[in-house]
Design a protein around this nucleic acid. Sequence first.
DNA 1: CCCGTTGGCGCA
DNA 2: TGCGCCAACGGG
Length: 472
Amino acid sequence: MSKYAANTDHAFLQLPDIQLGIYNCWDAHQTARLVKPLFDELEHLGNLDYVIQTMEPLQTAVIDMQSRGLLLDTRALGTYRDQVRDGIAEADHTILQADPTGELRKRTEKYPNGIGSPKRLGKFLFETLGLKTGKKTKSGIDSTDQESLYRILKNLRKKDEEHRPIIEALFHRSRLRTIYQRYLALETDFDGRVRAQVKMYGTKTMRFSYSKPALQQFPPEARHVFQPANGYTYLQVDYSQLEARILAYLSGDAPSIQVFETSGDVHAQNAADLFMLPLSEVTKAHRLYAKTFLYGISYGGDTETMKTKLFCPCKKCTDLVPPTLKLKRDVIKQTSNRWFQIHHAVPRFQDETAQFVRKHHYYESPLGARRWIAKPWGAELGRELKNLPMQFGGALLMNERQVQLSRLDAPIILQMHDSFLLEVPTPELGDWARTVREVMEAPVDGLNTSIPVDLEFGRNWGDLEKWTESAP
DNA sequence: CCCGTTGGCGCA
DNA sequence: TGCGCCAACGGG
């Protein structure tokens, strides 16, 4: 409950009631006086219509969503927490028993052992075990982050082969620890539901952000701890490749539009183009690469420095980890050139957007609002502007559709950038699936197209299956 | 590459 | 002790 509690210690609150009352009257009065100037300002900035038509009704929609919360399955949480704790203990054991000096096993006030301390861990890896160092941190010590561990593993010398399980355990442990301490320490209200804080103003792109807990970042393997109440079912509805579609239609990128209009898979098509393969020969690894590529390179990423997501390389995870490609620099450069050649409308659009912002100091989204920009001109702003139309546009669309859904009393419990999670009475699942699809797939004004959704349903958040008309 | 939150650490 | 940065997680 602490997150809702006011600071009752504040000296201000010790004043006599009459004084507090007078203060509150002045406060209300001054706030009311600000309404007119605020609306004039919004009008002047070109956002008044959007605020009145979307943000104002969205406030009640968000309050409703926030107060519904997500029901915690305490039994599932209990068993999963034990499982994660055991996993950490097992990894710790693998690492600690390998230290002949015993240095790493020493407990301090801060740490039960030395694994969590980058300094002591580095000493163990690079001095005691004598492993080849990966890279240095800013402050000059040998880094023990995931990327360094990955490099150590990749360049492991023959004589160090016996230490492979230790590096793998470190990798595995890191993820389990994040899950355990950041996502499994959940606070529930009296009714067993978790109610996170939702910020609807404050991000640069009008996306929402969640905290306590950060539900938008909840690791997929931990999501099963949330379940619908008895008699209810989860319904999740996702926009299909939301930003990729916005990019294609805003820039008028004909090849991608063609794929979307024929219900094709744009990431698979990109993979085919990048590697000059027929669609039938595109593997999962190719497709994943193309996806990462699109969200990297096309948003201003550099082929030299672009990092791909790292997956746990340990034996336990080999089956869970998607297949990845390891490409040479020049191959990456070639594929990048090939993509921009086919999608020449994209760099042209990026240029035009940047020129407009440079001249007018705002970006105007065809999806209904302006973003004012006061940042100095430079490479950083340049990259931001390559992303803004998509992320901002996506958020504006989600906001608009959430208002419409809330007018229909759709029981939304979570918004995740491109998707909504609903907790619906089980007998109404089919009705809600059709209603939500209809609202979300309605034509988008500024885009002259509709964006299709994928529907899923299930008995917990981590285990959802595709919904079709024939589903229960 | 972009947008976020969180926990740990180093620095003033 | 507050602040900025990093690293790890998610979404696109």
